[in-house]
């Protein structure tokens, strides 16, 4: 299997604080990979490094065997990697439809066009409509994103992330703050939408992690202490001690 994302000895320090220490990680093409770890372990920082929001202090990050560390977020996005945010990060004053459309425009090749009517682009309409239906927000199409319920905003967040057609998806705690029923629906949505794509997901809900992931990596104090299938991780004494044990107790 070819690799989608590869981290080689990645480090990140803020001043003297090393937040990420010598992290090496491989996510295979088409794999659903979960990243777990206690609060403050550096999971979100790792996402910020992979997506180009931050630059690693050392080491390199590769997307399909090409180095992406040092590139800007939009350059990485154009290469087919898209991420969501832990705190909902949408275009609050624009409608659901417009939000999704913004995420479709670059991928459909319209870029900075100022000579086309945005409402009349058939492939943009088609793709936006598909995503809108996928995330079950057809009925909320013309509502400004800022007025959606929390769960709806989370769905829109995922919609924006996948709308550009990226085949490597990074989701940062997509079910955080959701009720049990909402979480179940969100997991179903994620499973369906990431079909055939590579997924790297940060998640706190262990039922989500073990139900969704093909492989799991455990990040503690900026270091990956274990990486493997859900069974391996469940049986790993180091993980139990550092993380899962705490949860169980």
């Amino acid at each position: 299997m070819s690799t989608a994302i590869e981290l080689r000895g990645v480090e990140k320090s803020f001043g003297v604080t090393k937040v990420i220490q010598n992290v090496s990680l491989t996510v295979a093409q088409g794999e659903r990979h979960a990243l777990i770890g206690p609060n403050g372990a550096g999971k979100s920082t790792l996402f910020n490094l992979i997506s180009g929001y931050m630059t690693p202090s050392a080491g390199s990050i590769l997307l399909r065997d090409q180095t992406i560390s040092g590139l800007r977020p939009y350059q990485i996005n154009r290469r087919g990697l898209s991420r969501s945010f832990q705190v909902t990060n949408v275009f609050a004053n624009m409608t659901v439809w417009e939000n999704l459309r913004c995420a479709v425009l670059w991928a459909t090749g319209h870029r900075y066009a100022f000579w086309k009517n945005v409402d009349k682009l058939p492939e943009v309409r088609q793709r936006t409509a598909e995503i809108l239906q996928d995330i079950h927000l057809v009925g909320r199409r013309d509502v400004p994103a800022g007025l959606l319920t929390y769960a709806e905003q989370r769905a829109l967040e995922i919609g924006i992330t996948i709308a550009g057609g990226a085949d490597v998806i990074l989701l940062d705690e997509p079910t955080a703050g959701m009720s049990h029923a909402e979480t179940e629906r969100a997991v179903e949505l994620i499973r369906r939408l990431t079909e055939g794509r590579t997924l790297l997901i940060v998640e706190h809900d262990m039922s989500v992690v073990f139900g969704l992931a093909d492989r799991i990596s455990v990040l503690v104090y900026g270091q990956i202490i274990a990486s493997g299938t859900p069974e391996e991780i469940r049986g790993n004494p180091k993980v139990k001690e550092a993380y899962l044990g705490e949860e169980a107790a």
Partner: peptide, 27 residues
């Protein structure tokens, strides 16, 4: 007319959330 073009809409997106714009492919 400019407000109704892809550029015009991305201007609105930049106004609302310049950070997120970077993660949908735009500088």
């Amino acid at each position: 007319a400019l407000t109704r073009t892809p550029l015009g809409r991305m201007c609105n997106a930049v106004r609302d959330n310049p950070e997120r714009v970077q993660f949908v492919g735009y500088d």
